[in-house]
Each structure stands twice: as structure tokens, then as C-alpha cells.
């Protein structure tokens, strides 16, 4: 690791202030991606701003019919939260499928979303449920948050406070995981909401995306059969040693069908 200064502020304002004074400063959430990246010297922040001292960023609560998850809430807490399990089982299931138990004890939803790794799970739930990302400056709808490969709508000095998930009629997540890393080769999150069906795919392309053809088909007929012939183009999909772009495109249909079946 390259040298850095370490801070653990106790308020959002204090954290934002350190960030605003130094372009090279970086936020530290659970550190399950950032620390390995720094160890490989692929990231060299001048200062690390550890958010674990800000109590208001942690925890799950219900507010005005929505489930609010604080940015520093570990995956394990979301996976085992009774309210999340009862209201949005697809979200609890997704959180419990991330990495391994030790990663889930430490990794956070805010860190995952801010990083926007193409193979990460949480972007699937946030886009699939049409959640809202609340920052220290504004509210960003999921449809506007994920911009591209490791790219989000977050501005310099902007940090995620919490995520507001509307409660769907039903939802599920189905993931074809990399057996070594547990990252998603392809993950499909489907949700039937008051405003209609949403289908979000993670792992396949450079960034999480929706599949409007599947959403339309499921709006008129909520069944795995309704989407069995809907294929997505593999044009900009990821190819690596784990799977080719064409195979990922094939998996999109397979995993979306499994998610619909799981949602019931």
C-alpha cells in the first residue's frame, strides 16, 4: 500500500469537509474492495475517510412504507433483518449471496453502490426495485444512478447516506455465481411493483441494466414462460476467462426465468 492519512469522522459534515479539501481523498466503508485494491497499488488515496464512526449511517428501518438501509449497513445485517425478509425477501436473499460470511460481516451496501463493480449484486436490487439513493446533497433515483463501468452519478465530495427501497408486490434474485469469488457472472433481479414489472441484470455488461422487453412481457403475463424466447444482444457484454459475452447473453434469459419462478 502507498502511504495515506487515516480519519474517522463522527459526522457526515466532517467527512464531507475532508473530502472537499482533497481531490485524492477516498471514503472507506467496509473496505472489502478498496483495501485489496490499495494492497495491489491500483488505488493510492492520499487520505482515507473511514465512515464507521458515523452512527446515523448504520441500520435498517421502515419509514412511510419503504425500507431504508443505511449506507454503512453490512450485507449480513440486511440478509438477516426480519423486516427485510418479510417485506422484500428478494433483497434479503441477494444480500445473503454476496461473497462469504466474513465479507458479509464487513462489506456494506454504500460501498458496493459507490464502487458500482459490473459483477456486484446490490446494483441489481437497487435498479430492480426502483430504489432511491439518498446522499448528503440530494436524492438520486436508481434509473439515474448507475452510469457505466465503475461509474455512478455521485459528484466529487458527495457521499451516500442511505438507500430507500419501495416494497414490491413480489421480488426475487437469481444469480449464476463465479464459484471462486461469488461475484455474479450474471444476476437477475425481478420485481412486480405498483408501477409495473422491473427486470435488472447485473454481471453481464459493463453496468447493471434493465430489460424493457422482459418487463413488458411480464406485465401481461407473470410467468417464466413469458420471457423464455426473449434474448438480449451480447454486443457490449463482458468476456473473461469465466464466461464469453454470448454465454452471458444466454444466461440473462435463464437467470431472469429462474428469478420469476423463485418470486412465485
Amino acid at each position: 500500500m502507498y502511504q495515506f492519512d487515516y480519519h474517522r469522522p463522527t459526522s457526515l459534515d466532517e467527512a464531507a469537509q475532508i473530502l472537499s479539501q482533497d481531490d485524492e481523498a477516498s471514503l472507506l466503508a467496509g473496505g472489502q474492495t478498496l483495501l485489496p485494491t490499495m494492497k495491489q497499488r491500483l488505488a493510492a488515496p492520499s487520505q482515507l475517510v473511514d465512515l464507521s464512526g458515523i452512527a446515523e449511517l448504520k441500520g435498517v428501518r421502515e419509514d412511510s412504507g419503504q425500507i431504508i438501509v443505511g449506507a454503512m449497513t453490512p450485507h449480513d445485517t440486511v440478509a438477516n433483518d426480519k423486516t427485510v425478509q418479510a417485506k422484500i425477501p428478494g433483497l434479503a436473499h441477494l444480500a445473503g449471496e454476496i461473497g462469504d460470511p466474513q465479507v458479509r460481516n464487513r462489506g456494506t451496501i454504500g460501498g458496493s453502490l459507490a464502487n458500482n463493480d459490473p459483477a456486484s449484486d446490490y446494483p441489481g436490487a437497487v435498479l430492480g426495485l426502483g430504489a432511491t439513493v439518498r446522499t448528503n446533497k440530494r436524492e438520486i433515483p436508481a434509473d439515474d444512478f448507475f452510469l457505466g463501468l465503475f461509474e455512478t452519478a455521485l459528484d466529487e465530495g458527495e457521499l451516500i447516506k442511505e438507500v430507500a427501497f419501495p416494497v414490491p408486490k413480489k421480488s426475487a434474485y437469481a444469480k449464476f455465481h463465479n464459484p471462486a469469488s461469488r461475484y455474479a457472472i450474471v444476476g437477475a433481479f425481478v420485481a412486480s411493483t405498483e408501477q409495473g414489472v422491473r427486470v435488472a441484470i447485473t454481471g453481464a455488461g459493463p453496468c447493471v441494466f434493465r430489460v424493457p422487453e422482459m418487463e413488458q412481457a411480464l406485465n401481461s403475463n407473470w410467468s417464466a414462460d413469458a420471457i423464455k424466447d426473449i434474448k438480449v444482444a451480447a454486443d457490449d457484454f463482458n468476456t473473461d476467462l469465466h464466461a464469453s459475452a454470448d454465454y452471458r447473453a444466454h444466461l440473462v434469459t435463464v437467470m431472469a426465468k429462474r428469478a420469476v419462478q423463485a418470486a412465485g
Binding site: 472489502q32 483495501l35 466474513q102
Partner: peptide, 11 residues
């Protein structure tokens, strides 16, 4: 349980 290789002592 946590992985001590992916955590700073300061944390």
C-alpha cells in the same frame, strides 16, 4: 468473524 487481512488495524 472477519478477515483480518482485509481490515486496517485503525478500523
Amino acid at each position: 468473524s472477519q478477515k483480518a487481512c482485509t481490515m486496517l488495524a485503525m478500523q
